[in-house]
Design a protein around this nucleic acid. Structure first.
Length: 190
DNA sequence: CTTTGGATCGTCT
DNA sequence: GACGATCCAAAGG
């Protein structure tokens, strides 16, 4: 496995499974280790981010703004602290559960078009931190239905951070209606 | 449509 | 004691 910024676009179009719920990943962000000032791993391992330093394929969940759970895929190698934040997905299976866990939502595309919403819709919690996403027996895991990652993912700066804002480490499936923000018109990709 | 501010709490300074 | 890898409702154009 390479660095987080290499893995992030490869996770696009993969399936995230949590119990009976399944969604297709359409938006990711890369966060590196000590070298990345915007990463939780920037200041080294702590009690909160310890699973970020685990082996590749580990789930790292954390509490955001005291309210929301966010989910990351650790990219390894062990001890580095690189991870990919899962920012949005397209609901595939288990829609009934998603609707009931997302009261007030009207449009299907609003079920999981944000990192906090994604965890809520999928039923992923802080307790799932440390899960082995590659183990077929895990409640939360990642697999594929054969759909390859897009050859030309949209690339933008990461959202919601105040440091290292010039790095364009956010990746989106082109044309998706399920990203956290609409496709910007006019295109243009580096 | 865009902008603004409140919610809420664990973690680190 | 301050600050978030966010979300939503409310208010303004």
């Amino acid at each position: 496995m390479g660095g987080a910024q290499e893995v992030a676009p490869l996770l696009l179009n993969k399936l995230l499974v949590a119990g009976e719920r399944v969604g297709r990943i359409v938006e990711t962000e890369a966060y590196a280790g000590a070298e990345d000032p915007a990463s939780h791993a920037h200041r080294g391992p702590t009690a909160r981010n310890s699973s970020m330093f685990a082996t590749a394929g580990t789930l790292y969940t954390y509490l955001s703004y005291g309210i929301h759970t966010c989910a990351n895929v650790v990219t390894g190698p062990e001890g580095v602290g690189g991870a990919v934040l899962l920012r949005a997905l397209e609901p595939i299976l288990g829609l009934e559960s998603m609707w009931s866990d997302r009261p007030g939502v009207v449009r299907e595309r609003d079920l999981a078009n944000g990192p906090g919403k994604l965890c809520r819709a999928m039923g992923i919690a802080l307790a799932d931190d440390g899960t082995d996403l590659c183990d077929p027996h895990s409640r939360v895991r990642i697999c594929t239905d054969g759909t390859p990652p897009p050859g030309d993912p949209a690339r933008t700066p990461r959202i919601g951070i105040s440091r290292a804002t010039s790095r364009r480490w956010r990746f989106v499936v082109p044309g998706t209606a399920h990203a956290s923000r609409p496709e910007r018109s006019g295109g243009g990709n580096r």
